[in-house]
């Protein structure tokens, strides 16, 4: 069972991807949803400020952070990457802070800066990447962080033990290989 953080954003798109892979999932909206046993977590795209606030105020933060620290595999996409990161440029408040990287929010500017590209993500070749007001990773704090993609000298995808964080949105494409990567951890 994969838990999808469903506070705000494109959580349904992740559910659709998991359905295609015949993987079970459950939306996490409040504390009662955390009773289940999770084999993995997805933190979707959306607005990270909203998701951070709701995770905190709906009492989900500590529980989810503990799950990640205990090794439950997690995939964070765009806002999800920001939620995972240990540091956010401009000193903004962090959320789970389990992924030892620093991210820069809205790093490519406003919506006119949104773009798409094709690139390799680790062993996955030619992955379609959709960047929507996306962040990128500007600092790495551990040698165990594996860089999965660099685009125009900017790090956009990493893996650290059980955590995968990407700047872009695999849930907006029909390519399921990153979701498969999560399921294989």
């Amino acid at each position: 069972m994969i838990g999808i953080l469903a506070l705000q954003g494109a959580f349904q798109e992740h559910a659709d991807a998991l359905k295609k892979l015949s993987a079970e999932y459950k939306f996490i909206r409040n504390q009662s949803d955390l009773c289940a046993e999770f084999d993995g977590l997805i933190l979707p795209g959306g607005e990270s400020t909203v998701q951070r606030k709701l995770a905190k105020e709906l009492g989900l933060l500590e529980h989810i952070k503990k799950m990640i620290e205990e090794g439950v595999p997690v995939l964070g996409t765009c806002a999800g990457l920001i939620l995972l990161s240990k540091e956010i440029a401009c000193g903004e408040e962090t959320t789970f802070g389990t992924l030892p990287v620093a991210v820069c929010r809205n790093a490519y500017g406003r919506q006119l800066g949104s773009f798409s590209a094709l690139g390799n993500v680790g062993d996955i070749s030619d992955f379609p990447m959709r960047f929507i007001r996306a962040p990128y990773i500007e600092g790495i704090f551990s040698e165990d962080v594996e860089i999965l993609n660099v685009l125009d000298h900017k790090i956009t995808a990493v893996r650290y033990k059980n955590q995968i964080g990407v700047s872009f949105h695999p849930e907006l494409t029909s390519d399921l290989r990153l979701h498969q990567m999560l399921l294989k951890i």
Binding site: G9, F11, G45, E47, A79, S116
Partner: peptide, 17 residues
């Protein structure tokens, strides 16, 4: 057409908000 797609996708990110 890619720009239109990206614009629809921004709206997807606003969902549930």
């Amino acid at each position: 057409s890619n720009r239109y797609q990206l614009n629809k996708e921004l709206a997807q990110m606003l969902k549930g908000g």
